[in-house]
Design a binder for these strands. Structure first.
Lengths: 184, 184
DNA sequence: ACCGTTGGCCAACAAGTGTTGACATCGCGC
DNA sequence: GCGCGATGTCAACACTTGTTGGCCAACGGT
């Protein structure tokens, strides 16, 4: 086979995302990734430098949280749930991060950065106090991540079987409350 | 040093719990555990047979969910939150399972078993339909695990900083709603 | 005082890891 | 055609992993 370097780089990156999403950082070996990509392990090194840098590339992504302030306030919770369900199912990077962030400090730091840089600012638009916005964003994150954990990773049967609209109907009000409810 | 075999076995088990809780299954190596215990790695093998069996012993535990039906119904959510905060902070096995269940299939299966065998029965006491009880238990688990994930593992600052009573005040009503709210 | 049992350590194994460098092979510009 | 850089392969490295078996030393009953 003979390809342009950017092509093979993309192939490797795709294989890495799948592997890391399925196995996490430690068990996602360079050899297995190279094998999935049908390529020699040394190519992975050549194009990405090290396993860490490959992981960084594979877990680089954007939450793409929409501008929620523009919605009628009572719809924000449901919109958030829908957005994250979509995001979760079409971008493996989120799974990569969750699978790896639990055992790998770099990945955990990356998640904190995404939380602070991408979710928190959205919440800050609703609440002036940054501390309060932080708590509310943290609570929302805990429910979103916890649900993804149970549905996509631990695969608790009742959680897996819920329909998309069931999920929205159950989690939407929870997030709405974390947004609106006066602090205790 | 010279000890009785049950003593050293307990020492090894304690070290294993700590290691697995901190590093998860893959990175919690037998050598590191033996080192923490001040003991030769071969002893670990002798007393536990294999890494898998050691892990099984280290992650064996009881949720100890109290008999919630005996409480005034409107206090169940708060009681659940308090119970799990306690449970989480005094038994490392929960952390072991969460850290490992994300990348290790055996550990995930163990979590499903605990969910189905220890949390679900409690919910079933409140709702006759097993499917409905399953969904409600799954939602509760998603919020509980997600919060633990953000507080103890990913360490999102605002979530770490919340006081115990803040947590109860925020999460209690969420769990209460997953228990009481009519299905959508 | 002896000897078997018991608790402990050491060295080694086979397998798998990230990583490296030397070598082959293709394709384009001269 | 020739050469050269880009693309790809192979074999090996140093290291870590779980696991094994042999050896040592202390104890306890006789």
């Amino acid at each position: 086979m003979r390809r342009t370097s950017t092509e093979t780089k993309a192939i490797i990156l795709a294989a890495a995302r799948e592997r890391f999403a399925k196995d996490g950082y430690e068990r996602g070996t360079i050899r297995s990734i190279a094998n999935d990509a049908g390529i020699d392990p040394s190519m992975v090194m050549r194009y990405f430098g090290s396993k860490e840098q490959l992981f960084a590339a594979a877990s680089d992504f954007d939450l793409k949280v929409p501008r929620l302030v523009e919605l009628p306030r009572e719809q924000v919770g449901g919109a958030l749930v829908r957005h994250f369900l979509d995001r979760w199912e079409d971008d493996e990077a989120l799974m990569v991060l969750l699978r790896s962030g639990v055992t790998n400090d770099d990945a955990a730091e990356r998640m904190r950065a995404i939380f602070a840089g991408q979710l928190l600012p959205v919440m800050t638009e609703f609440w002036v106090s940054p501390e309060e916005a932080g708590r509310r964003a943290g609570l929302a994150a805990s429910q979103i991540l916890g649900f993804a954990l149970c549905r996509y990773i631990l695969r608790f049967p009742p959680v897996v079987e819920m329909s998309r609209e069931d999920v929205v109907a159950w989690l939407g009000p929870t997030l709405q409350r974390y947004l609106d409810e006066p602090e205790p």
